[in-house]
Amino acid sequence: MANAGLQLIGFLLALVGVATTMAAAMMVEWKKQSQGKSHRIYEGLWMSCSGNERTTCEFHDSVLKLPTEVQATRAVMMFSIFLSAVAVIVSTVGMKCTHFMDGDPKSKSTVAMIGGIMFMVSGLLTIIITSWYVKMIVQTFNNSHRLQSFEFGKAVFISWAGGLFTMAGGAFLSCRRCSRPQSSPSLRGNNLLPTTNPKSNYV
C-alpha cells in the first residue's frame, strides 16, 4: 500500500508539473520591454501584447519571422507537453491503484517505470529549453542597447517550476523500489520435512 501511495504522489506531482508547463507555454510574458513609465510590450510563444493601462494582443503572423529562441522554445515545449500526455496514459496503466494488467504485476511495474521516465525526460526538456531561452535573451540584452532590449518575464519561472514538478513526479513513478510488486514471503519447508529419518533397531 505504501508503494501505491508513493506512485499516486508522483503521478499527482507530474500532473501539476504538466499543467504548470502548459500554462507557461500559453503565457505572453516570456519576455518584456518597458518604453517610458507606463508603456509595456510583452512577447510570448504565440502572441505579443502592448499598451499602457489597456493592453492589445495579437497572434504572431508568420513563424519564419520569429526569433530563433521563440521558434525553438515553442517546438520543444509542444513536444514536452505531448510526451507528458503519453506518459499520463502509460503511467495510468502501470500504477498499482488501477486495475490494468493486474494479472502480470511485473510487467505492470515496468510500465509504471517507463511512464515515470517519460515524465522525467519531459520535465528535463522543459528546463533545458527554458534555460536556453533565458540565455539567448540575456545575450541579446548585453549585446544591444539596454533601453531597447527585452528582458525575460515571469513565464520562464513558471516554466522552470513546471519542469521541476514533472521531473519530481517522474522520479517517484520510475523508482524501481516504489513500482515493483511486493514479493510474497517464501515458504520455508525446513520445518515441514524431517531432517533425519532415524531407524531404531530393537533386539
Rank of each mutant, 00 (worst) to 15 (best):
V16C: 10
G51M: 02
I114M: 12
W132A: 11
S144R: 12
N143G: 06
G169D: 07
G189N: 11
I41C: 00
N191V: 04
F100L: 06
R146D: 07
L187W: 10
I137W: 05
K199I: 14
R54V: 13
S144Y: 05
M47W: 10
S48P: 01
A87R: 11
G123M: 05
T55V: 15
L192E: 10
V156Q: 08
R177Y: 09
V76C: 03
G10F: 03
L8S: 12
Q182V: 15
G162A: 01
T55Q: 14
V93T: 02
A171D: 02
P105V: 13
S91P: 02
S91Q: 03
V111N: 03
V90W: 04
M95V: 13
A112D: 02
R54H: 08
S91L: 07
A2L: 13
A4G: 11
F165G: 05
V138Q: 14
G116Q: 09
H99C: 10
G94K: 09
R40W: 08
Q182R: 09
S144C: 07
A155Y: 07
K108G: 11
S91K: 11
R54F: 07
G44R: 09
P181Y: 11
L147I: 02
P198T: 12
K96H: 09
C178N: 13
R74M: 03
S144W: 00
F59M: 14
A14D: 11
I89G: 04
W132M: 14
W46A: 12
L64V: 10
K199N: 10
K108A: 07
L124A: 15
V88L: 15
S179W: 03
S159K: 07
D102M: 12
T98G: 08
S34T: 10
E58G: 00
R146H: 12
A14S: 15
M101Y: 06
S159R: 03
A72M: 04
G103S: 09
I114V: 15
I9Y: 07
S80D: 15
M77E: 03
K96M: 14
L8N: 10
Y202F: 05
K199M: 06
S62T: 08
M118W: 06
A112T: 08
V28N: 07
T21R: 01
F152I: 11
G189E: 08
R180A: 15
A87Y: 06
S84R: 00
S50R: 09
Q35I: 15
N197G: 02
M113H: 06
T92I: 13
N3V: 05
P185T: 12
M118R: 05
I81Q: 05
T55A: 00
C97G: 04
A14H: 03
V90A: 08
C97E: 04
L64P: 00
T20N: 01
H145V: 14
L66C: 01
F100Q: 12
Q33L: 14
S50A: 14
W160E: 05
S107H: 12
N52Q: 06
I9A: 14
T110K: 14
T92Y: 13
D61S: 12
K96P: 03
G51T: 04
H99V: 04
K106P: 00
T56E: 14
N191H: 10
Q71A: 05
R146L: 05
V156M: 09
Q182P: 01
L45E: 01
E58L: 06
E53K: 11
W46H: 08
F82R: 00
T140E: 14
C97S: 13
A155N: 05
I128F: 10
F82L: 15
